[in-house]
Amino acid sequence: MHTWVIGLDLRERSQGALHFARWVAARHRAAPADLLHLLAVHVVDAGTMRRSLRGEDFDEMMDERRRKAVAVVEEILGDKADVLVVAGDRPDERLAAAATLHGAEGLVIGRQAKANEERLVALGRVARRLVRTLPAPTWCVPPDWTEDRAGDGPILVAIDGREDCLPALRYAARMGVELGRKVLAVFVVELPEPWGEPYANLPRLLAEARDRFIEEARPEVESFLGGAGYGDMPYEVREGPVVQRLLEAADEHASPCIVTGSRKLSLVERFFTSSVGSTLAAAADRPVALVPPA
């Protein structure tokens, strides 16, 4: 059984997640054999509700939430998904538990910021926590994403030549098979800092340095893909800011989604080092999967 868990918010921010789940269900090779299970999970903040309601009203409120949750899911997914409404003070922990219990192939969540919308807080509290803990491959979807915005190109997977991106590479290859899409690996190389200043006013030399770094990276990428068992996977090497170049590649190739790995940085580590995965999840105009390390 292939189970996908969808984090359900009764506000509009989960609309994109539901549409993405429908897009997956329409293409997943397990769906025709009834081996694809969609489970929408809505978590009610039990602590807040109990403080604001009398005890005897709690069950009635839960029933009302169930009715609303079913209506929201059926509007987009029809009868293709089961709906689970649970109470808990930490929605991220409840969603993580559901994903772990069902061995989820994907955990799909919405974010606050719409596609191409600049917001101080793009992911939201629950999404940020899940992106840090990654109980399963976690898909972050803009709230306004719909199937008609899914490109017809390959799934794009970001690689950096290190072992900790292997799970993302394997997951992308698996999703390519499950969803009937090709996969394109993209490796982004950044010029070392010393190159920036001396050649800032010498475009020709800077361009030559950029081309040289790209060419020198190709054997490394081919060796990495070959060693991982994906020697025939098409790839590209680009130079520049990692997130920007990945988003450009996704646009140019009409990729329906992006897959990237995660090093599960702690809060302290995130203070000093930005996370490519979480930045992509917050900025991309399409679904982004963050895959936990092995």
Rank of each mutant, 00 (worst) to 15 (best):
E220S: 09
W145G: 05
V189H: 00
A30F: 13
Y235V: 08
P137A: 15
A200E: 15
W23Y: 11
R51Q: 15
L123I: 14
R212P: 04
L280K: 01
E222H: 05
D79I: 13
T260P: 09
H2M: 15
E64S: 08
G78M: 11
P142A: 06
G277C: 02
W145P: 00
L191G: 01
D285N: 07
E216W: 09
E117F: 05
L36S: 10
R65G: 04
L84H: 05
P167I: 04
V44I: 15
E60H: 09
I159H: 08
W23K: 00
I109N: 03
R170T: 13
D144M: 13
V291I: 07
S266M: 12
L191C: 14
G196V: 09
V85P: 01
E74Y: 00
E147Y: 01
V72L: 04
L123F: 12
A282S: 04
L120H: 13
C165Q: 14
V288Y: 00
V73I: 02
G229L: 15
P32C: 11
R238N: 10
A254K: 05
P293I: 02
I258A: 06
A21D: 08
A207Y: 03
S275Q: 04
D82N: 02
P219G: 11
V189P: 00
P167K: 01
G196D: 15
F271T: 07
M62Y: 14
M62P: 14
G7E: 10
I159R: 03
F213V: 08
A127G: 03
E93C: 03
A122P: 00
K114P: 03
P256Y: 08
T146D: 12
H253N: 14
R162E: 14
K68Y: 09
P137D: 15
A158C: 10
R111D: 10
V186P: 04
R129I: 15
R50Y: 08
G103F: 05
G176S: 08
R90N: 08
F272T: 09
V237Y: 03
G231R: 13
E239H: 02
V221D: 02
L265I: 07
E64H: 06
G47C: 06
G240C: 03
A217N: 03
L101C: 06
P32G: 13
L246A: 07
G153W: 02
A281V: 08
G106H: 03
V141L: 14
Y171W: 03
R238S: 12
F271N: 09
G110S: 08
V141M: 09
G88H: 08
R149D: 04
H19S: 00
L10Y: 07
W4T: 12
S278G: 00
W139L: 15
V259E: 09
L18P: 04
T138H: 08
A250L: 12
R149C: 05
L225P: 02
A173C: 07
E197H: 11
V85L: 01
A21M: 05
E163I: 09
F213P: 02
L95H: 04
A294S: 10
A98M: 05
A172Q: 13
I159A: 05
A115N: 04
T273K: 05
E163R: 10
V183L: 01
R22H: 06
Y171L: 08
A249F: 07
L265D: 12
